[in-house]
Design a protein around this nucleic acid. Structure first.
Lengths: 211, 211
DNA sequence: CCAAAAGTGTTGGTCTTACACCCATGC
DNA sequence: GCATGGGTGTAAGACCAACACTTTTGG
């Protein structure tokens, strides 16, 4: 009984996930998503949260169960079952730590995926699919954005995840009409015209037709 | 490591699920969804398919994983994990069989739910939610309809599941425009004006905006 | 002839999309 | 002054929701 966690973040305007290098077993040297066995006293959800926290130092963030694979090729022969999760965390909060189980950990852009250990190629496909679907009808992008952000930054997150460009005026109209954001007094200073900063009113998961 | 299967069907124009009466253990006498332990050589999906087949005699039908609960109250103390599934089968094909594990099996309308054993009240909510969402953007209703059916019958299935009435003309326009159905030469005879019979071109799962 | 379901088009409103110009800032 | 992103409104088309009457059959 194991868990695997696909941890997404944005690294320099690229959607990326965390890969770890397997240290031993039949898949030694291959890359995989972090994971591990569920321990005695903990629930499956808790094991996933622990894995997320051990690798990244993040305790909050967004964590969602994806799917349970009943026939992974991990340890072929035994019917090991693994429950996959996806997590969203803002890069700023992260302190990477491969831990004792893995020889390395790195952020990898979601395109150009190497061959992964176990059944993780399947897990990868599913996670991406779920993320792309879910940004369109929930407010989960709030977990990829900092507390305060401009509408331009928010739009960029959508464009990166959905791989298509959005019309700026239409995007603003829709997002603001949803009433999920609250404009802040402050503005973003920088090399260009200052932009109004916004924050999510609520960061708890909500189902709302976004795009 | 266990599976639980919520089996939906339509009984006399009512959406119903199959409940079984628990024969022993702490939940003796309570109703639950059928389920059981995953056996040595089989995968989790196979265990669910076996449970469906043993209770109903149906081998094909639609089967979809719902969610994995890591902390059921089944056998409190142990961390038993159970993977829940939902199945759709047309009533006509079914031969109910409680099997040795259960003292009874019955179809129960989805409203008026009794207190269920284990964590099955949660499973029930999730299954209904998933079914209601999924009829709207996939072709899964094909698994609740007979091979040949009229548009009126199809519309009724939607109305029953979604608990709202639909406009007949708009429904026809939309469904026919999707091109999922093929009209048959034959017509349904009966006490009223004969209706054209239709069949699904494809019965494999497809994602299509239906309503 | 009555009850019940089948079959069929149009219209108004809403929503979605496409599109262009000026503004504020740092360098 | 120039490059870069911020900010704003409108018009055409697509889509959706609402709506009534006639037909066919069995009993």
């Amino acid at each position: 009984m194991a868990v695997d966690v696909v941890i997404f973040t944005l690294v320099k305007d690229r959607l990326s996930w965390l890969l770890v290098e397997v240290k031993d077993g039949p898949f030694i040297g291959k890359w995989a998503f972090p994971g591990g066995l569920v321990r005695g006293p903990e629930s499956v959800d808790e094991a996933a949260a622990r894995e997320l926290s051990e690798r990244t130092g993040v305790n909050a963030g967004y964590l969602e169960q994806l799917y349970t694979f009943g026939k992974p090729e991990r340890d072929p022969g035994t019917r090991a079952v693994s429950v996959s999760y996806m997590a969203l965390v803002p890069l700023a909060q992260i302190r990477l730590n491969p831990g004792p189980k893995y020889s390395a950990a790195k952020w990898q852009k979601v395109n150009r995926l190497p061959v992964l250990a176990y059944d993780h190629t399947q897990v990868a496909r599913l996670a991406l699919q779920r993320l792309r679907a879910k940004v369109q009808y929930t407010n989960i992008v709030c977990h990829l954005l900092p507390r305060e952000f401009t509408l331009g930054e928010m739009q960029r997150v959508y464009e990166i995840i959905l791989r298509r460009s959005l019309d700026r005026r239409n995007f603003r109209k829709k997002i603001l009409a949803l009433g999920l954001l609250t404009p802040l007094r402050r503005q973003k200073i920088g090399p260009h015209r200052p932009a109004t900063l916004y924050a999510f009113r609520q960061r708890r998961p909500m189902v709302i037709e976004v795009l």
